[in-house]
Simulated scan of single mutants.
Amino acid sequence: MDAASRPAPGSWAVVVNPSKFDDLARVRDDVARLCDVHDWPRPTWYETTVEDPGEGQAREAVDAGAELVCPLGGDGTVRAVASGLLGSELPMGLLPGGTGNLLARNLSLPLDDLDAALTVAMTGADLAVDVGEVAWDGAEPAVFLVAAGMGLDAEMMAGVDARLKKRVGWLAYALSGASALFRLGFGVRVAADRRRAVSQHARTVMVANCGELAGGLSLIPDARVDDGLLDTILATPRSIAAWFAIALHVLSVHRRGHPALVHLTSERVDIVTKEPVEAQLDGDAIGRRTRMTCSVRPAALTVRVVAREPE
């Protein structure tokens, strides 16, 4: 269905993280104004809390009859709302409200234009995307939409200055990463599906559902959010030269590969470290862990994306 022919939903909801906005009333007014301009219904608003960052609010919106649910906050809010929508088959519309907007980046959605993002959410096409699940140290699984990881990427998240992040956005992560770059690595064993396990001394290990990270960095160009697979990246540099070679590989148009960068694809992956290592989930640091078991739920979530023009 093309964008022009899709009717706006009769009832829809916004799940907002109020901590992300200095003037939430103005944001509400902007959404109301845009709805009035386009003759769309105004949404029902649900605010997240520390105790419930969005999952319960999304379920409440579903129970209330919403036909579309839109998270408005950071990547954590998007992940929580997605958790609440699993199994409902209702579409999720992505509105810009965080620093990373990682899932929106990977789906080529508007990142800083509320009007454009709202237009896609209200009139775009539906795309069924994969959802990752991760169980840390044997705990109950949590979902991820972009990536779960251990090591350098998680240390970047844990070390970022919140005030600096608010001022300069994703560059705050780069500064945090620079300070963490030369710390010691860790022993890790990675088993992907039924293939022989890989044991390495690594600096970072990341399990990704899609390939683009903050700042437009394309870590895994071949990763697709709807391919039914997870992509695991294991970085094992042992020198400054190896780090530069990995950086050249990531930034290059022609991916030549490097022995210090292992790439595996699978439906399931088990990762065990020799000692507790900092971990992250869709960009949120969650503390030190020693094991993560990841699997993929193919086409488990519906997301509203830009409608393609008919050929």
Rank of each mutant, 00 (worst) to 15 (best):
M1L: 13
P7H: 09
S11C: 11
A13R: 03
V14C: 08
V15M: 04
F21A: 01
F21Y: 07
R28F: 10
R28D: 02
L34F: 13
C35W: 07
D36Q: 14
P43Q: 08
P43R: 04
P43W: 09
P43G: 05
W45K: 04
E51N: 09
D52N: 09
P53S: 03
R59V: 07
R59F: 08
A61F: 13
D63S: 12
P71H: 05
L72V: 03
G74R: 01
A80T: 02
P91C: 05
G93E: 09
L95I: 10
P96D: 01
G97A: 04
N101P: 08
S108Q: 13
L109W: 08
P110Q: 08
D112W: 05
A116T: 03
T119F: 12
G124P: 03
V129H: 05
V131T: 02
W136M: 10
V146L: 11
G151R: 09
V160G: 00
V160F: 00
R163S: 00
R167I: 00
G169I: 02
G169S: 11
A174L: 14
A178Q: 11
S179E: 14
F182N: 10
G185I: 01
G185M: 10
G187M: 03
V188W: 11
V190H: 06
V190N: 08
R203G: 13
C210H: 14
C210S: 14
E212F: 08
E212G: 05
A214M: 10
L217M: 15
L219C: 10
P221T: 10
D222A: 12
A223H: 12
D226S: 14
L229G: 02
D231H: 15
A242L: 00
W243K: 00
F244K: 03
A245R: 12
A247V: 09
H249I: 00
V250E: 07
H254W: 15
H254Y: 12
R255C: 11
A260M: 11
V262D: 15
L264P: 07
T265S: 15
R268K: 13
I271G: 07
G283T: 05
R288E: 09
M292S: 01
M292T: 02
S295L: 05
V296L: 06
P298S: 07
P298N: 01
A300N: 04
L301Q: 06
V306N: 13
A307Q: 07
R308G: 15
E309H: 15
